[in-house]
Simulated scan of single mutants.
Amino acid sequence: MSEPVLALDGVEKHFNRGLPGEVNVLRGASLVLAPGEVVALVAPSGAGKSTLLHIAGLLDTPDAGRVRICGQDMTDAGDQTRTAMRREHVGFIYQFHHLLPEFSAVENVILPQLANGVGQGAARERAMALLDRVGVGPRADHRPAEMSGGEQQRVAFCRALANGPALLLADEPTGNLDPETSDRVFAALMDLVRDTGLSALIATHNLGLAARMDRVLRLDNGLVTEG
């Protein structure tokens, strides 16, 4: 059996730890994401899905438990190791696109590649291929403010996949869009994910979108359960 792309084992996260107002967000959350698997994470508002995604993506550290990415235990890794893992193997998508407003669409997709040591020409070629794949190639030289919300989010998808990550983490990636646009944009995301063969953990409130993925996980009361 192939090594999981992501494995969380008994992850706990507490805020205001040891104080009267302590909040136990994660109470031993565990999950495994296989290569090429697209999994929905469904959770009530405030249940801790963003916290779980931040820990999975090495943006935060757990108070207990283990985090493994691509077979490497990252729980106690130093900042440089964590940064390198994120840059090379993890892509992030958020509800809001967070594109750099002063740069064009294609430049927003080029920049993370340059930071990863890719040459300008190769970075631009990959950026254009990704933008064309999601149907915004003709808008490549437009800045975010000149694009629709759906177009902006598709550019954000391309930026997240620019460095060819093994793991994609998405936090309500279509939650800021109207239902019709959300459906189109989600279809574009799924096409990208399937084409590249990466693994994805996608948090969503939309049960219709969740049903289109390989599995559904639920986060409730600090624990992850199937279905």
Rank of each mutant, 00 (worst) to 15 (best):
A129S: 15
F103C: 09
N116F: 01
C70A: 15
R126D: 00
P101M: 05
A64L: 05
E125F: 02
S104Q: 09
A156S: 03
L58I: 03
F157W: 07
T61K: 13
D141P: 00
I55A: 13
V106Y: 10
H98M: 10
Q120R: 15
G91P: 06
D63G: 13
H98W: 10
G137E: 08
H97K: 05
T83H: 08
H142T: 05
D79I: 09
L99Q: 08
R139E: 12
R82C: 15
G137N: 10
M85Q: 05
I110H: 10
D76M: 04
V109P: 04
Q72N: 08
E88S: 15
V109L: 06
G78W: 01
Q153D: 02
D141N: 00
I55S: 09
C70K: 10
G137F: 12
A64G: 12
S104F: 03
L52W: 02
A156R: 01
G117P: 12
I69E: 00
A115M: 14
M128T: 14
G57N: 07
M85T: 04
A115V: 15
A145V: 06
L53C: 06
E151L: 04
C158T: 08
L58S: 01
A145D: 11
I55R: 08
A105T: 02
V155E: 02
I93E: 01
E107H: 07
G91I: 05
F157H: 06
P144D: 01
I93N: 02
Q72P: 01
H89E: 14
A115N: 13
L52K: 02
F103T: 13
N116T: 11
R139Q: 15
R86M: 03
H54F: 11
Y94V: 06
V90F: 03
G65P: 08
V109S: 05
D76V: 05
V136I: 14
R154G: 02
Q152P: 04
H98S: 09
N116E: 12
M85E: 03
L52Y: 05
R139W: 15
L59P: 01
R154F: 05
F157I: 15
E102C: 07
V106T: 12
D60H: 04
M147K: 05
A64R: 12
A56S: 14
A140M: 09
